[in-house]
Design a protein around this nucleic acid. Sequence first.
DNA 1: CGCCTCTCTGCTCATGTGAGCAGGGCCGCA
DNA 2: TGCGGCCCTGCTCACATGAGCAGAGAGGCG
Lengths: 354, 354
Amino acid sequence: MVSTESAAANELLAVRAAELYYEENKTQDEIGAILRVTRWKVGRLLSQARERGIIRIEIVHPRARRLALERELGARFGLKDAIVVPAPVDEVELQARVAEAAADYLVSVRPVPRLLGVSWGRTLHQVAESLPVGWSTGVNVVQINGGVSLSKRPGTAASTAVMIAQKAGGQATLLPSPAILERLETKKAIESDRTVGGVVQMARGAAAYLFSAGVADTSSVHVDSGYLTADDIAELRERGAVGDVIGRYITADGTIADPELDARTLGLGLEELRSAASSILVIGGEAKHAVARAIVTHGLCSVIVTDEHTARALLDDLDGDAAADASAGAPDSGSSGAAAPSGHHDSPAEGSAS
Amino acid sequence: MVSTESAAANELLAVRAAELYYEENKTQDEIGAILRVTRWKVGRLLSQARERGIIRIEIVHPRARRLALERELGARFGLKDAIVVPAPVDEVELQARVAEAAADYLVSVRPVPRLLGVSWGRTLHQVAESLPVGWSTGVNVVQINGGVSLSKRPGTAASTAVMIAQKAGGQATLLPSPAILERLETKKAIESDRTVGGVVQMARGAAAYLFSAGVADTSSVHVDSGYLTADDIAELRERGAVGDVIGRYITADGTIADPELDARTLGLGLEELRSAASSILVIGGEAKHAVARAIVTHGLCSVIVTDEHTARALLDDLDGDAAADASAGAPDSGSSGAAAPSGHHDSPAEGSAS
DNA sequence: CGCCTCTCTGCTCATGTGAGCAGGGCCGCA
DNA sequence: TGCGGCCCTGCTCACATGAGCAGAGAGGCG
């Protein structure tokens, strides 16, 4: 009873001490005089107050980061680096923050990559826009997956790579090919063309890759751009696809969802991403948690730039283990089943032509 | 342009420094090494961050206080002391916090008042309940306004004073009289009774007064207790009454709303409250802002215990100056106008009798 | 073009603060 | 009642920090 009472009294003292210290900027000595305790006790009270969460210190700034989450992510998934930004309520704002953080990160990477491989998409375009002019000197950029011309809106594919290169005073090398070809032969043919093959070859030599990922649903840029139809997406989802990485649709277990489709997808392969020294994933938002998980849990990126909700979702053991378990059992059915149905990909091309 | 750019860069640095300092517990020297600036600059960045509100330090505890507001209140209204507690969203909780704070204050007042004058009501009862047993030694309590017996619920009038005294190991002296008498003659008669008159006389000698205030509406304890009817309240409101202090209804300009009614009100007068060395007002909640303002702007209390919303409302210049201006112009009309109409207070008495 | 001023930088020094340690009171237990 | 263990207190000392100051660089103005 006595201990309870004194504990409560101590807590009150701690609160008073915290107020005087943090709000009134008094020294611990002065506080000691006011509260009639020694300054050492004041120090201890303040420590207690911090430990017990009575004092909440928050950094309110759009560019703030979540270093604790970054450390956890890095440790848990063996990443070279992790950047986590606080998530604003607004999804649009969130994407902007993540893109900004990715741009900041890119600016600060040492050593500066001489050649940077980039994919494209809404996210990457925002990253490109967020980069300051002159963010580096002489960084050349190479596109790592196809998709230059199909979408006519500015801010996709080509312009992304070009903008990143321009702002660093370097050259952009584009991959002059669709992301996904209609027929495997066409893909092989175009791939063997020196212009295209050379670019892919160059991409393989990039010191770092910057990429994002798409969700396997109809909001995908692949549907927007006409490479895939809603039916294709439905098919992919049935095969367990959670999203795409540099154009290649993967399942939760990190494997290719549909090898036939993948064979017709032009650009860098997943293995090249996996083995790269620096592959920077930029991803944010609720919808992309599944694909983000697939990527980080299977080593497809060495650096992640994301928001705190995504980070927490990735670290959350419940989901984490569940997804891991699911992926452990799935690969077999995924790869064996994927080979069987094929040649159902005429519609996307028609869609793109209209 | 250059200055803008470097200012932005500085802000970013400040954010990073703040993160490392407050979230990662690194020393300014270490941070300097990380951010490639000197430790002095880190210190400056942190100062900036604090000044510019990038760092938000909050003390989350039910017993926390708002020292800045307390200081402002004290300075603005010439108070001896001010206690401001953070306002929880819940009104019930808010009342409890204010009462608790008042109890804390009472415990800590030095010198300890040998004789404490108290009023009664819901708020004061909560204060009494919040006082710890043995909060002081030998503090006697005297009731400063009538109202012992009319309400039969426990926790009003008498029990408040008794509880406060008991918990301090002192004697309670009650005022054995209704708060408001039906007829002036009765009031004068009862007042001249030695039992009653003596108590009032004793109350005048109290070293400190503890009181709250009521709102001039039908939720008032005066209506509950049957001293006043809804019609009386309506009448009082027409005369500009904002609420009651120790049973006496006052207007925004701090004067008696209805002198005739006031003459029939038994207990300490406002002047005695005003001239007291220590008169502690305990008041909280949106509804009581107006009466709280009337009290503090006209010197009826020397100490206020309240919530932060009330405090801010009191300090808010817009309302503040408006009320001050009104009160500056009003006293004359208030005192002269109040004397004219009288003798219309039979109904309240009838109401209380029924 | 040169000077002036104003701000920002990196320093010295005094002060503020936290880690670690010895002593003392309080408890349970014999 | 005496003993041992425990926690809490107040201290020493080393380190971290903020105040104040001289010098350097960037603009602005004549």
